[in-house]
Amino acid sequence: MKVDEVPQDDSKSFEGQRKRLYARNADGEYTTALSSGWEAEDVVLDQAVEEYNRFTREARERVQRGISSPLEYHMYAHRMDLTVLAQATGLFRWQVRRHLKPSVFSRLSPRKLQRYEEAFQMTSEQLRTLPAEDDKNND
C-alpha cells in the first residue's frame, strides 16, 4: 500500500480519531500514515455492532413479554454473550442461563445480584429494570 492509497474515508466510528497504518512513500520506503477510516472496516464494524443491537432489541421484547429476565437485555446491551457474562461474574454458564428466566431472576439473592451489578457497573435498580427505549448506554 502506498501512502497516497491510505484510505481517508472519515469513519464515524472513529469519532474524529485517526489510525496509524504502514505504507510506502514515493521512494518505496516504509513510513507511517494516518487514516481517518476505511469503508471496508466500517462495514464490518457496523455489522458487529448491529448484531448486538439486534439481540438487545429482541431481548427487550422478550423481557417485556415476561419470557426473559432483564438480565438478558443488559447482557446484550453491554455487548456480552452468555460466555462473556459468565466469565465476568465468575459464575457458570448454566447458572447465568438459569438467571435469564424471570422466575429464577426474581428470587436471586442480593449477593448473586451484586455480581451482575459489578459486571455491568449498574445499581440494583438499573439491573432489575429496562432503561427507556432511547437510552442504550447503561454504563
Binding site: S13, F14, E15, Q17, L45, R79, A88
Partner: peptide, 8 residues
C-alpha cells in the same frame, strides 16, 4: 475509547 470500538 470510541463507542463503536468498545468490545470486551
Amino acid at each position: 475509547f470510541p463507542e463503536n470500538m468498545r468490545f470486551h
